[in-house]
Design a protein around this nucleic acid. Structure first.
Lengths: 206, 206
DNA sequence: TTTCAATTAGTACAAGTGTTCTAAATTATT
DNA sequence: AATAATTTAGAACACTTGTACTAATTGAAA
C-alpha cells in the first residue's frame, strides 16, 4: 500500500500549493512517478483524493480532542489546544482555502463538517464554562455576548488561512503565530483580573 | 451600451449563484441572449467580467465612505456603516466566496484589494478613536487588544459570507442580520457603561 | 510451478473551455 | 444616401480534463 500513501502525500502538497483546481489527476500522478491511469485505479478522481485527505484531518483532530480531555482546562490548555488546531489546519490548508467550492461539490464533506462545527461550538461553551468556574473568565455581562464571541472565534478559526493567503506573502510558522495571537488576544477582554495576569504570563513566556 | 450592462447583470447573478467556475462565457452569453463570440468582444473572458464587477463594488464602497464622512461618528453611525457594507458585500458575494482563487489569478485585483484593506484598518482605528473620545468606548486596557480586535473584525467582515454558505441553507436578509449582530455584538465588550446603554437602545429598536 | 487476483502503464474518447477569425448586420457619421 | 465604424453571430481551433478500457506486469496463494 505504499503507492496510495505516496499519492496522498503528493496530492496534499499540490493542493496546498497550487489549489484544488490546478492540481489534476495527471499532475499528481506525474509527481508521484506513476501513470494517471494507475492513480485513477486507487482514487477515482481528485474529489476522492480531497475526501480522503479531509478524513485524515478529522481523524487527527479527533485524536487530539481525546488527548485534551485529560487536561484540567486551565487557560494554558485552551491556548495549547488552539495552537495545535491551528497547526493541523495549516497542514491541510487547501481545504480551508477552497472550502466553499469543495462543500458545494462534495456533499459528504458538507455533512461531516456541519456536525464537526456543532461539536466545536459545544467545546467552546464547555471551555468557557470551566474558565468561569475557575475565576479566570468573567460571567456573561451582556446577554448573548458569548454566543457572538464563539461565532467570531469560529469564523476566525476557519478563515485565518484564506485571510493570510490574501494579505501576506509570508508562509508557515510566522503566519500561524500572527493569527494565533489575534485569536488568543480576542479572548483577553473577557478574562477576569486573575485571568489577564495569567494571560500576560503565558504570552510573555512564549 | 445596453449589451454591456446586461452582460454584467447576468454575470453577477450567475457568479453569485453558480460560482465563478461554473459560470462560463457561454452560459452567461446564453442567458443574456447573445452569442458567446459577442460577449468576448465586450469582455475578453470571465476574468475581465470579474474585474469589472470588482471595480463596481469598490466604486460603491467609495461612494458610501464619502457619504459617511459627514456623520458625527456616533455608535449608531458606526453600526449603520457596517450595515450598509454588509449589504454591499452580499450583493457581490461571489467575490468573497471565491476570493482566494480570484486573488491568485488576477493580480490587479490583489493589489487593489490590499490598499483597500489598509484603508479599512485605518477607518476602524479612526472610528474607535472617536468613540473613545466620546466616552462610548473604553481606553485600551490590554496592550495591542484593539489591533487584535480589528484583525478579528476584518476577518469576520470578509468571511461571514463564505461561512454562511457553509453553515446555513437560508439566504438573504436573514443571514446578513445574523452576522451583523455577531459583528456588532463583538464590539459590545469594549464599550463603556454609557456605550453599552446606547448599544442596548440601538439593538432593541431594530 | 501454476493460477488467479491485484496493480500498473498507456491509449483513446467525449465533453467543455477559452480564444480567434470571418462575414454579416447594425448603427452612426458625413 | 453613401460610407465607415461598431457590433454581432457562428464556426473553427487548440487545449485540458475526467473517465474508461485494454493489455501487460507483478505478486501471492494453492
Amino acid at each position: 500500500m505504499k503507492t496510495k500513501e505516496r499519492i496522498l502525500e503528493v496530492a496534499l502538497r499540490q493542493f496546498n500549493e497550487l489549489g484544488t483546481d490546478q492540481a489534476t489527476v495527471r499532475s499528481i500522478a506525474e509527481e508521484a512517478g506513476i501513470s494517471h491511469g494507475n492513480l485513477c485505479y486507487h482514487f477515482k478522481n481528485t474529489d476522492a483524493l480531497i475526501e480522503a485527505l479531509y478524513d485524515r484531518l478529522t481523524e487527527e483532530i479527533d485524536e487530539q480532542a481525546i488527548r485534551m480531555q485529560h487536561t484540567d482546562n486551565e487557560l494554558k490548555d485552551v491556548i495549547r489546544q488552539a495552537e495545535i488546531t491551528f497547526h493541523l489546519l495549516y497542514k491541510y490548508r487547501f481545504l480551508l482555502l477552497d472550502f466553499v467550492r469543495i462543500i458545494r461539490r462534495i456533499d459528504s464533506i458538507r455533512q461531516k463538517f456541519r456536525t464537526l462545527m456543532q461539536l466545536r461550538r459545544q467545546q467552546f461553551h464547555r471551555a468557557f464554562h470551566n474558565l468561569i468556574a475557575k475565576g479566570l473568565m468573567r460571567e456573561e455581562w451582556i446577554p448573548g455576548q458569548y454566543n457572538h464571541l464563539i461565532t467570531n472565534l469560529l469564523i476566525l478559526g476557519d478563515n485565518w488561512i484564506p485571510n493570510a493567503e490574501i494579505h501576506f506573502d509570508e508562509k508557515g510558522e510566522k503566519v500561524i503565530k500572527y493569527y494565533l495571537e489575534a485569536f488568543i488576544g480576542g479572548l483577553a477582554p473577557y478574562l477576569t483580573e486573575t485571568g489577564v495576569r495569567e494571560y500576560y504570563r503565558l504570552i510573555t513566556e512564549s
